[in-house]
């Protein structure tokens, strides 16, 4: 049975809130399903969502959160894979292009900025799920975070080029080995999480660079090709996710 848009949103927000609070997936699904079936029965009898959540959906979400234990084991289990994935995203591209080098600066600041960026996303996802923000505001916040992260990375890259000597530059063979390890991480993570995204996205990200290692193209053309493949790939992924979402939830937006 279809729920009203308001109820669908409430359940999606509750899921997001519990997920970003580090709760266990199965428990989140259990309470979300239970509330969904309650809302279905309530709405089929002409009641609205406020009769279920009370006047403050925020306070209601919080009352559910406080009854659930934080899934530290689940988080700890995810961490090593997560760190490996992050490393793979950082290193595979430069390794394929043979531009890999390590300096003290990159070693310290790249992970730092990555964690800061992810922390900021999680923080705002939580905020967004309990408070109703306008779409404009949500987009503004995410663009803001994205922009800040990109700017920080760019600043570090410049600092790194001009001020820091790399202490280790892998040989071409070593760089290929690192790239292969990165690809292995993507594949294992895709199998582990049963998602194809971590295979397809790197394919678009690093595929063109890989192919162009073996054919002669000018540097400018190389940049144009890899950028356009990346954006076309991203558009394909988003379109596919959108269609899939529509198929699974035909009544949703």
């Amino acid at each position: 049975m279809a729920l009203t848009k308001e109820s669908e949103e409430f359940i999606a927000n509750l899921r997001m809130y519990l997920l970003t609070s580090g709760k266990n997936d199965e428990e989140i699904n259990a309470i979300a399903d239970e509330l969904r079936s309650h809302l279905e029965e309530a709405e089929s009898r002409g009641k609205n969502i406020r009769s279920v959540t009370g006047d403050s959906p925020e306070a209601y979400m919080e009352s559910i959160r406080s009854e659930m234990a934080t899934d530290f084991f689940g988080i700890a289990k995810m961490m090593p894979m997560f760190i490996l994935l992050m490393l793979a995203y950082f290193l595979t591209g430069p390794a394929i292009r043979g531009e890999l080098s390590f300096s003290i600066l990159t070693l310290i600041t790249y992970p730092l900025v990555a964690f800061l960026g992810i922390g900021a996303y999680v923080f705002f996802f939580r905020k967004m799920s309990v408070r109703k923000w306008s779409t404009k505001r949500e987009i503004a916040v995410f663009m803001g975070i994205q922009f800040t992260v990109v700017l920080l990375f760019a600043a570090m890259m410049f600092l790194d080029i001009f001020l820091f000597e790399p202490f280790y530059i892998p040989s071409r063979e070593m760089a290929w080995a690192i790239a292969a390890a990165g690809i292995a991480v993507f594949i294992v993570s895709a199998l582990w999480n049963k998602t194809w995204i971590t295979v397809v996205l790197p394919l678009f990200l690093f595929g063109p660079d890989f192919v162009m290692q073996f054919i002669e193209v000018g540097q400018a053309r190389q940049l144009i090709i890899s950028t356009s493949v990346l954006y076309a790939g991203l558009a394909l992924i988003i379109a596919f996710l959108f269609i899939q979402n529509k198929k699974q939830n035909p009544h949703k937006l």
């Binding site: 309530a42 009769s51 279920v52 959540t53 009370g54 209601y60 009352s63 406080s66 009854e67």
Partner: peptide, 12 residues
């Protein structure tokens, strides 16, 4: 009581 308030109690 609001209807949803039984669920946190059931969880406990």
């Amino acid at each position: 009581i609001s209807e949803g308030s039984i669920y946190p109690v059931l969880m406990r």
